[in-house]
Design a protein around this nucleic acid. Structure first.
Lengths: 144, 144
DNA sequence: CAAGTAATGATACATAGTCTCAGGATGCTT
DNA sequence: AAGCATCCTGAGACTATGTATCATTACTTG
C-alpha cells in the first residue's frame, strides 16, 4: 500500500475546517475515493455509489478539488480523470493505455518554471504538467 | 502580426499531402482559423461559420489535430481550446482571465523531461505542459 | 459519362458536468 | 424540546463538447 498523505479521516477534517458538513453521502464518496490508488472518473465513482445521487458525487468532487486534496487531469484523448493528491505539490504521469495515474515531484521543474517566468509576459498563476506514458504493466501486456 | 509557420495555403497543402480533399467547407474552416491569433473553441468556430455544418467543423478540427497543425489545450476550469501550432514543438501559456493562448519553447524543458524519464517507470510517449497566467492586458484591466 | 469513393449536413447519441427545485437533515437559539 | 434558518440532498432538466449514423451530394478516375 502506498503511503498516503491524506487518509479518509483527514479528508473529512479538511471539509469541516472549510465549514462544510461531513454528511453521510460525502463520507461515502470519501470512503470510496480512499480505496482508489489509480485515477478514476467521476461517472465511474457515481456508478459505484448507487445510494448517492450523481449530482452529490460531482458536488463532493468539486469541494475536494477546491480544497486541493484531489487533482483533475486529462488523458491525451481528453477524457478527464481524478486522483487523490498525496504530496503537497506534484505532477502526474498518466498511462495512455490503462489510465493509471502516478505522481512525481521534480524540484528542478519548479526551478525551471521560475526561470521561464522571466520570458513570459504576464503573471504566472499556475501550471499543469502531465507526462504521458505507457506503464510497465501495459508494456508487458503488449509485448506478449 | 505574428509570424506564422503555417499559412492558410500550407494548411491546405498539408491536408492534401495526407490524402484528403481540400473541399469548400474545409477551406472555410481553415480560412477562419487563419484569422485567429488567440485560442478558440470549436463551438465558437462553428457558430462563426453558419454555412458549414457543425459536424464538419469538428471533423476538420480533428484532421488538423491529427496532422499536428493545431493544438488542443485546456483552461484550468476544463474548457477546451484550440490554437494554431506555429512552432514545431512548443508549450502553451493560457490566460485564465481572457483565454488568450501563447506559445513558448524551452529547450531546457526538453532536457529536463529526458532527465525525469530516468525516475519514471514505463515509457514516456508525450507530455502536456501549460503555464496558466494572467496576461498583461488583463492585469492592466483589473488594476484600473 | 458511369461508378466508386469521399465528404457533407442534419440529426441522434454519448459523455461530462452544472443548475434548479422541492423536500429533508442539521445545527443553533432559546 | 421547539422553532427556524441554513445546508444538503436526489431527481431530473439542461448545457457543452464531441462522435456516430445516414441519406444525399460532389469528386475523381477509368
Amino acid at each position: 500500500m502506498t503511503a498516503r498523505a491524506s487518509s479518509k479521516r483527514d479528508l473529512i477534517a479538511i471539509l469541516e475546517d472549510r465549514g462544510f458538513r461531513a454528511t453521510g453521502p460525502r463520507r461515502d464518496v470519501i470512503a470510496l475515493l480512499d480505496t482508489k490508488d489509480e485515477g478514476f472518473s467521476a461517472e465511474r465513482l457515481a456508478g459505484e455509489l448507487p445510494g448517492v445521487g450523481r449530482a452529490t458525487v460531482y458536488r463532493t468532487i468539486r469541494l475536494l478539488l477546491d480544497a486541493g486534496v484531489i487533482c483533475k487531469l486529462a488523458l491525451p484523448d481528453g477524457a478527464p480523470k481524478y486522483s487523490l493528491a498525496r504530496a503537497e505539490h506534484h505532477h502526474h504521469t498518466v498511462c495512455v493505455s490503462c489510465g493509471t495515474v502516478g505522481e512525481f515531484r521534480a524540484v528542478t521543474m519548479e526551478r525551471l518554471l521560475r526561470t521561464i517566468g522571466d520570458d513570459i509576459s504576464g503573471e504566472i498563476v499556475g501550471h499543469r504538467i502531465e507526462i504521458h506514458i505507457t506503464c510497465q504493466e501495459c508494456l508487458a501486456k503488449n509485448a506478449s
